[in-house]
Nucleic acid binder design. Sequence first.
RNA 1: GGCGAGGUAGCUCAGCUGGUUAGAGCGCACGACUCAUAAUCGUGAGGUCGAGAGUUCAAGUCUCUCUCUCGCCA
Length: 576
Amino acid sequence: MREPMARILITSALPYINGIKHLGNLVGSLLPSDAYARYMRLRGHDVMHICATDEHGTPAELAAAKAGKPVEQFCADMFETQKALGEGFRLSFDHFGRSSGPRNHALTQHFAGKLFEAGLIEEVMEKQVYSNTDGRYLPDRYIEGTCPNCGSENARGDQCENCTKQLDPTDLINPRSAISGSTDLEVRETKHLYLRQSKLRDRLRDWINTKTDWPILTTSIAKKWLDDGDGLQDRGITRDLDWGIPVKKGDADWPGMEGKVFYVWFDAPIEYIAATAEWADAHGKPDADWRRWWREDEGADDVKYVQFMAKDNVPFHTLSFPVTIMGSGEPWKLVDHLKAFNWLTYEGGKFSTSSQRGIFMDQALDLLPSDYWRWWLLSNAPESSDSDFTWSAFQSGCNKDLNDVLGNFVSRVTKFCRSKFGEVVPSGGTPGEEEAALIAELDTRLAAYGAAMEAIEVRKAAAELRGIWVAGNEYLQRAAPWAAFKTDPDQAAMVIRTALNLMALYATVSKPFIPDASAAISESLDWDGEWPASAAEALNALPEGHKFTVPENLFRKIDDNEREAWDAKFSGTSAT
RNA sequence: GGCGAGGUAGCUCAGCUGGUUAGAGCGCACGACUCAUAAUCGUGAGGUCGAGAGUUCAAGUCUCUCUCUCGCCA
């Protein structure tokens, strides 16, 4: 029984351009959105899965300077790197775009113009610190100096980390640039645009209150920002930078804002939309084809929009971006379901880019194929609380689940069949009670697996999938075709035929988690299936006489020596 | 300091709106099997659910206090 086809728009939080992402970033958004997208496609739904690099802002400029490249070149190169790594992890985006692309320029300027028309943008003169040596305005956190409160010499312009007092950059004694160390600073007056989020506070609250099915993590963060202290604050959405989207009202210039760009957090979420437009451009499709995903007046009224992100992104997705959408007065699609993840820690501490602590996407793929990482990370995703990556857990998880349970199942079934019946689905025998029991268990587990995926409960789904794999070994153990073969070859043939069909089922249902292994099983069976209507149907998928080949071992074990070597290699520079 | 999230078997974690002997995986012990990648399957031992108090016929599950851990503070 097929469900009616749904249209599902899925976005993953945009990885920032300043460097290669670590496993925490991977599991905090990219991987779960991919598993969800793959599952929904598998169920026959119409899926648009979108991601992009988030390229603007001071950290990008600094990373470029550190790399000795012009920022545009740096971003172009890093985009290619991140795109390739995404492909390495088999992230199945329909499009992986760039927030610096022309589509996002146009859309961001369009939204700004609409927000201005709606009276939601205000021009504000403010004082900013300019560094003559660096030739740039310095964001608060890039100004350091002596704390007027506690005397610490490493206070930042936004806060003293020593005494935690909130500061303004002008409070600092002997301020200096955190970039160059220069003390040649001056305060300049500069005009900026503020998004009047506070005016939409009630609408936002009403809207969030309708999201009763959202995780507590999500709504509690949003409500905190809405109601804490003075409530939702207006927010500066422009910056004095070169690299970014020039401030305009739609196509028109914005008097007094020449040379300024939009703040990265204003333009980044709009890239979700722009990247969908980039998708259409890349495939030579008309605008109507992407707008039907985003404009409720142009076909998106039946779209379900699901966003994936780590918890630090929640305020921007529950408040800032919805302000942009609602405030525009145009019927753009708002998020329907928002899935936020906690942090993945590394051996009990933080992943750290600066001290190279933890594992980064490129390094991970150098060690093992993507399926190992996908499986372990997804089956241990930090959903309800932070979760911890440890090498020993990773080793035992991969070895047990992938190698011993799934890989060995495929191996024992195909090799037994080859030695007794040849590389062909054997005929003969009649299914009995064991098969009925197997079907009953599979139906239960498939339903549970599907329900968990629908609810985006990734860990639970992984556990059910694993249970489906285990059911195969349990069945083989009970049915014992090696024993039956001696007295009743037809019975053994029926059992092995059932087991080969189980393999085919595994190839299908495992796709969201381990697409490469799924493909390898499919290839060895010369068969690719859709989500089964029932377990009974699934176990009759392969025709008798159908040829297959015994595959190479799907997985290998991670041995103790490797684990110890990797543990040492990635423990970071600090000896904690 | 403020805020947030947590402290459940050796380890990593599930436990919804309070209700039979608190669950899973791994690890461990014992047993079975021998088709398979020394893989698999079964059985079992492990927890006064951070501490204390309260509400209730009934609390891991609600309230308060304390304590410890982690994170965030634009």
